[in-house]
Write a protein that binds this DNA or RNA. Structure first.
Lengths: 205, 205
DNA sequence: CCCTTTTGTGAGCGATGACTCGTAATGTAG
DNA sequence: CTACATTACGAGTCATCGCTCACAAAAGGG
């Protein structure tokens, strides 16, 4: 289902520029025209290269979207890591809140592109996204286990899954459109949700 | 983008059977072949009717999927209502837990179809699903406001959104595939998540 | 029985799309 | 300059798809 064999790698700088232009063009088509309007011909035209050049480096249409998703995923991850630097010294509850907010914020890097990748793209790309979520889940799992006695946890596996699932869903809901509530309030409530779940924040007032 | 005018309604029983066969065939193609393989010709063939007959009752391809989604949505809603009958007499925390479990269970009616509708289908169908979620959100909002003084709520709008978003995400996560955790445990944790968030269930042991 | 309405048919039109391949241009090494 | 590898090109192939339309068969009604 993944289509064909991998294609050759660019050797010269010229070729690397071409590949880059193609990936960027794919992203632009994705956000400007939508997933349904994505065609290899259109991408080639938008990139200013010929359709033949495109197929020298990408075996099929899906691999284009995959490349974009990969790049976007890495950008997000880098951003997240940067945002988490400052968390190290904080007390647990504040650290957690910062992490949650960072996780949500990071979904708003190029939100249109994120929306398309997350909601419109197909099998392979979705699998890639899902794999990213599983990675996050493992990280959360580790963090939970490490603080097992400070927290209120019955089943760390299930807890990690629920937490990641929840925060990701909220983050994505914020980039779909009107949400019937104020965004900042939603983020605040999400923090409360997770903190109370983990037994970290007793009710105030 | 929604295509064309609505088509005529079936007057005779014969025609109603045809329409039904078409909707059912659409659902079968959707779960057996996937959204990407859905074509009007294929649906017609699978339904055992001619392509012309299909276009007598459905203006375009999307309306097929929409009909399936509509039907599935109604089935789910009916199921949910039935499951909620028994909740009336229970104390608040148990009622809430039952409701959450019901909401999740109901996503497992024809899970394959649900998966396709929720994850693979496009604009119109997605809008329909989203509208359903908003309805749920309004219901939750009302329920929260009604019990405002028993619960721990700062912003009912945001709370309703977060809760619905969360439970729906968990429900959908359970029908995508391996989850890295036991399903029942996930459901239990989700209940805890929401109950603790609303200040209903203090920590046990 | 005939006339009208409703229902059913499927060949085929026009469009689009993914992808190939023969060829030409450009870089690169000796 | 020459020979070879790399890169770029884009017309064209083949398949599919959404959808129409001219027509035929069945139902209903008088």
């Amino acid at each position: 289902m993944a289509g064909h064999e991998p294609r050759k790698q660019p050797k010269q700088a010229r070729a690397r520029a071409t590949v880059d232009a193609i990936v960027q063009a794919t992203a632009r088509v994705l956000v400007e025209d939508g997933y349904d309007s994505l065609s290899t011909n259109r991408v080639a035209k938008r990139a200013g290269v010929s359709i033949g050049s495109l197929y020298q480096y990408f075996p099929d249409k899906e691999s284009l979207v995959l490349a974009v998703a990969e790049k976007h995923g890495e950008a997000i991850l880098a951003d997240l890591r940067a945002r988490l630097e400052s968390v190290a010294g904080l007390p647990l509850d504040q650290a957690l809140e910062s992490t949650i907010r960072a996780f949500i914020d990071v979904h708003l890097v190029d939100p249109e592109l994120h929306r398309v990748i997350h909601f419109d793209a197909h099998t392979l790309t979705r699998a890639r996204v899902r794999q990213g979520a599983l990675t996050a889940q493992r990280m959360v799992h580790a963090a939970l286990v490490e603080r097992q006695d400070t927290l209120l946890i019955r089943d760390a596996d299930a807890a990690a899954h629920v937490v990641v699932c929840t925060v990701e869903a909220v983050a994505n809901s914020l980039l779909v459109g009107p949400v019937g509530a104020d965004s900042e309030a939603v983020v605040r409530e999400t923090c409360d949700l997770v903190l109370r779940y983990l037994g970290l924040s007793a009710a105030e007032d």
